[in-house]
Design a protein around this nucleic acid. Sequence first.
DNA 1: TCTTGACATTGGAGTCACTCCAAGGTCTAG
DNA 2: CTAGACCTTGGAGTGACTCCAATGTCAAGA
Lengths: 156, 156
Amino acid sequence: MRIGELARELGVSTDTLRFYEREGWLPRPVRAENGYRSYRSDDVEHLRLLLNLRRIDLPLEEAARLASWCHAGHCETTSSSLPALIATRRSDVRARIDELRRLDERLDELQAHLVGRTELSVIGPSTSCCSAAAAIFDAVEGSCRCCAVANAEGDA
Amino acid sequence: MRIGELARELGVSTDTLRFYEREGWLPRPVRAENGYRSYRSDDVEHLRLLLNLRRIDLPLEEAARLASWCHAGHCETTSSSLPALIATRRSDVRARIDELRRLDERLDELQAHLVGRTELSVIGPSTSCCSAAAAIFDAVEGSCRCCAVANAEGDA
DNA sequence: TCTTGACATTGGAGTCACTCCAAGGTCTAG
DNA sequence: CTAGACCTTGGAGTGACTCCAATGTCAAGA
Ligand SMILES: [Zn+2]
Ligand SMILES: [Zn+2]
Ligand SMILES: [Zn+2]
Ligand SMILES: [Zn+2]
């Protein structure tokens, strides 16, 4: 099995495979007479394991270490630490999801604000900056400075 | 205002500020007699704008460009493109959230599988790999090879 | 036979957005 | 006088790839 075929089958780039090998995260496969890498089924399994560990967002170093341990059959250690590892990973993932949800909410507010204020943009730039900038400036932080400016001008 | 104070106030590191300046993402502030950077309120506003744009996860280059435009008062262009920009950003964020949720589900399944199978691990390593590796190997992909192995050995 | 095209090889540089460091200069309080 | 908190610079390191140039290999078609 050559590198391109393996890469296609497992959904990564040949560059990634060569990078893994170069940095020592994967064992070097045997070479054919022409110098091409020739992957055996054992190599394929090792790589598949590594990629699965990467898919649960383990850092490459940890994934590679674990993959080698498992592949070499030293999995008692791994077996006992694995649930804790997964638990940590889950809380990381959830924290990131919460972060992104908050970001999405902020974006939602900002979008609504910008759309709702389209008519008001004829007021033009405020003293310190234009209204669009003020909107970003403030909507992201939760309080709106450009509205205050607009209201003040509307009252005047 | 010196760099440390500004950094503390806006919640970034001094390294980040020097990096932004060095790479041209922020204008250079005036220097005091001793060579220290001296930030004016205008600089602070520009930086705050840039950081707000970064907080909605715009790439630094785009955030800096937009911040400069807005800060210079050329915001008509910005006003018209901003809703589209936000919309794109939102769909990116949502896609990432979905990805992470799928990951969380996979981790949940994997965890349940590992915990539920503790007794079965006495079966020991299968022919190709140990059961822990097999679990990662397969649970991440949705079908479980180690169970098949265990069942086969149980039947034998 | 020759050529075209798809594949492979290597080392090295680039990406993004910081982050850390060493070696030094400056200022304030005790 | 000294400790410490601050500031300066240029440069290297991070993670996980990604892209590139220059070159080599091989099978199929004209
Ligand atoms: Zn503006
Ligand atoms: Zn407003
Ligand atoms: Zn194993
Ligand atoms: Zn199983």
